[in-house]
């Protein structure tokens, strides 16, 4: 018992000393489980996140926009791959993680349970959803687990391109025809609050926060990150002449931050529990892709086995 305690103390000392934890290092079981949960949730989010954007590839309004959107979604598939690999360093296989997603045991970011209804939504997703994700991901480049931190460095570079292209779509629409402006404003109206919810519950109500902070998996709180996002994004909206849909939004000179209205946490929990506009569609799409791909994966495995057997025989 005292050995374990010693290990835990030494582990915490390393964390406090800003040393990275690597796959072969001793770590408390709860640290491992917490990371597996978080990294796999992040990986699943990248993969499910391909769906609302993929919804507009075939309707992208110009060849250039179509190329950018394809490249962006391809990046997301790549992020999913690095993250599954990072999770695998903790001793859990990709198949197992995907199984947890498909059976509903593992979660993905709730934001992807909202529908992409117009081309402006592709702008809003890049600008707001990727913009909110970056706040979190920049913090995670300094997370205590080495493979996760390194995956995040690469991901952040690509995400900032995603955020810029989304904002560019919005700014072109906002200076376009009346219909295009209305499309942009409507997208901001629908995606604003769900984007603020992406940072998770308020600090006082966050289930995993305290432990994650102690272990430096997280380094800033949900509310701090959310505030930073609001401060930055409100100014960006003003620059292109769009209105953030929050009557309580006001610059607070004393705090040096924007004050903003209350978040509808009932909506948030409802979507988390499976009642968002697209939860069923997203899971159905993932399950179908997995089921329809089964014979393909089996063929690849069978061929590899035959090839290996022939090699041995020769």
């Amino acid at each position: 018992m005292s050995d374990v305690k010693n290990l835990e103390e030494r582990f915490q000392e390393r964390i406090d000393d800003e040393q990275k934890i690597e796959p072969r290092d001793w770590m408390p079981d709860k640290y491992r489980q917490n990371l597996i949960r978080q990294i796999s949730q992040h990986a699943h989010s990248e993969v499910v996140g391909m769906l609302p954007e993929g919804n507009w590839i075939s309707r992208a309004p110009s060849l250039r926009r179509k190329a950018i959107l394809l490249a962006k979604i391809q990046d997301e598939a790549g992020h999913g791959l690095y993250l599954y690999s990072a999770a695998e360093t903790l001793g859990v296989g990709r198949d197992q993680l995907i199984d947890q997603l498909l059976t509903g045991k593992a979660k993905y970011s709730s934001i992807f349970n909202y529908p992409s209804l117009s081309w402006a939504d592709i702008g809003a997703i890049g600008w707001l959803v990727d913009g909110a994700a970056i706040m979190n991901q920049v913090m995670l480049t300094r997370t205590s687990y080495g493979p996760y931190a390194r995956a995040m460095v690469r991901i952040c570079k690509e995400e900032s391109f995603h955020q810029r292209q989304g904002y560019e779509i919005m700014s072109v629409l906002a200076s376009g025809t009346e219909e295009q402006k209305a499309m942009a404003q409507d997208a901001l109206d629908r995606w604003w609050w769900p984007s603020l919810m992406m940072f998770g519950p308020n600090d006082a109500d966050s289930a995993h926060s305290a432990e994650s902070m102690k272990w430096k998996i997280k380094r800033e709180s949900n509310d701090e990150l959310r505030q930073r996002f609001v401060d930055r994004t409100v100014q960006q909206a003003e620059t292109i002449g769009l209105t953030v849909p929050d009557p309580d939004l006001k610059w607070n000179e004393e705090r040096g931050h924007y004050d903003f209205g209350p978040i509808d946490w009932d909506e948030f929990w409802n979507v988390v529990k499976g009642n968002g506009p697209c939860n069923r569609d997203r899971m159905k799409a993932r399950r179908e892709a997995h089921e329809n791909g089964r014979w393909v994966r089996e063929a690849a495995a069978a061929h590899a086995a035959k090839k290996a057997a022939r090699k041995t025989a020769a």
């Binding site: 993969v47 391909m50 769906l51 590839i57 075939s58 394809l70 599954y84």
Partner: peptide, 12 residues
């Protein structure tokens, strides 16, 4: 492009 998000395995 219609396959995007629906492939049989992430690499594909």
């Amino acid at each position: 492009g219609e396959w995007c998000g629906h492939g049989p395995v992430l690499e594909e």
